[in-house]
Design a protein around this nucleic acid. Structure first.
Lengths: 233, 233
DNA sequence: ATGCATAGATTGTCGGACAAGTTGACCGGT
DNA sequence: ACCGGTCAACTTGTCCGACAATCTATGCAT
């Protein structure tokens, strides 16, 4: 079966399609991908398949050590915790900065409205507009590197979601409320409050995901400082 | 002269050597590097040279667009500002977290002592132990991704230093004092003070580097909040 | 069952080949 | 002399085929 793809680069096309396959969970985590497999699947030369695999490895879609064959990444509990902790480190500082300017991007408001719209329609898989909410906040700092780093983390979150397909998720209702509260705190210039709420918001998601991925609740390096935070409901 | 490197991979060896050449400024910024150039220089196949170049591009040592030949990166004032702002975003949150535990790594103390030792000997190029001080702080959070991200930023700083070779630098005396103060604030649990001092510390370096790279002092997105900070001397 | 040896599979690297795209120079028109 | 377009040389993208080095797994001997 040959997929019809013509972008600007054969390697790009193969990379994009394989990435889509992994995100759609049509390639289960741990699946071995031989260079020849890829070459035959898309009818390209092995060198091309090799280049594609190497890029997917550097994009953390596949993993491979020296002379071994590449496999679709398996995100474990420790990985999710690391991913989410890194998100917290970056994004909480971003929120502090935004709170100082008392300014948040319109895209984040729209993204939160999209979540509400999906929830109203009974759709519980709201991870896409959810990530848009967060990336919009980070992007509003206008730092190319910060944005790219956060996008890379967001992609790993997507991968994680793909592997979890169907297990329990957080209630959209709470997510929407906390997002709104975050924007409110930013608008009010409450840097500490915004950072603390974000910490709680992401820490809760982190623990839920980590447990869903089969990990026992590990000893967390840092507990959120929620003392300064009024409850949200 | 052949360097004795038993890496397991020819591509790795080529990548490492080219990286070293760029860091030593033996390949000036903007220098064009043809795939054939690399292949002939190291007597390897073009495919190997191609792979090496692609990895150097993804490591931000070279830059290249579609069908054009790769060039050694040229870091401009805007890039330095972006690099340093990203450093500030990440590291200031890291310092907040460390201050909560009132704990800093011994490696950062040692690194600062190394700076002092070099300064005593009249050496002004202290960027190496300086970066070790900062990476040690970030590494002590024990987040694989956070550490890797910061290392990538640190590498760009190194590239920048290589391009600036010889222009004015900040006084090691002030750097040493501020580093010591940072550790002191962490030990005292003063998260806000540590974050603010770090912001000043890195913002000053950022502006000096940006100016040295020929940029006018641009409109900064965020000014450091030094109100809460007592002066250091 | 454990450990070693061999065979098959897979990756790393090579050389050469051709099409497609980019760059720069040459040439003609105004 | 300036401008614009055509063409050639160079460079990259992709392919094919080949071989050595390495990894995996099967099977044999103890």
């Amino acid at each position: 079966m040959v997929r019809r793809i013509t972008v600007t680069s054969v390697v790009d096309a193969v990379v994009n399609d394989l990435k889509a396959l992994v995100l759609a969970n049509e390639l289960a985590p741990g699946t071995a991908l031989t260079e020849n497999d890829v070459a035959e699947r898309y009818e390209v030369a092995r060198a091309t398949a090799k280049a594609a695999i190497e890029r997917l490895v550097s994009d953390k879609v596949l993993e491979r050590s020296n002379h071994r064959t590449a496999r679709v990444v398996m995100i474990g509990p420790d990985d999710v915790r690391d991913i989410y902790n890194t998100r917290i480190y970056l994004e909480s500082e971003v929120l502090r900065r935004l709170a100082r300017t008392r300014h948040y991007p319109i895209e984040s408001v729209r993204a939160n409205e999209e979540i509400r719209a999906m929830w109203m329609q009974g759709e519980w898989n709201i991870s896409d507009p959810d990530m848009r909410f967060h990336t919009a906040l980070v992007a509003s700092l206008k730092s190319r590197r910060t944005k790219k780093i956060y996008q890379s983390l967001a992609f790993e979150v997507k991968l994680c979601m793909a592997q979890l397909q169907g297990t329990q998720r957080l209630s959209p209702e709470i997510i929407i409320a906390e997002h709104a509260k975050l924007l409110e705190l930013i608008g009010a210039g409450d840097a500490v409050g915004a950072a603390n709420l974000l910490d709680e918001h992401l820490s809760r998601a982190r623990e839920l995901l980590a447990e869903s991925l089969g990990g026992v609740a590990g000893p967390e390096a840092f507990v959120p400082c929620s003392a300064l935070l009024e409850s949200v409901h």
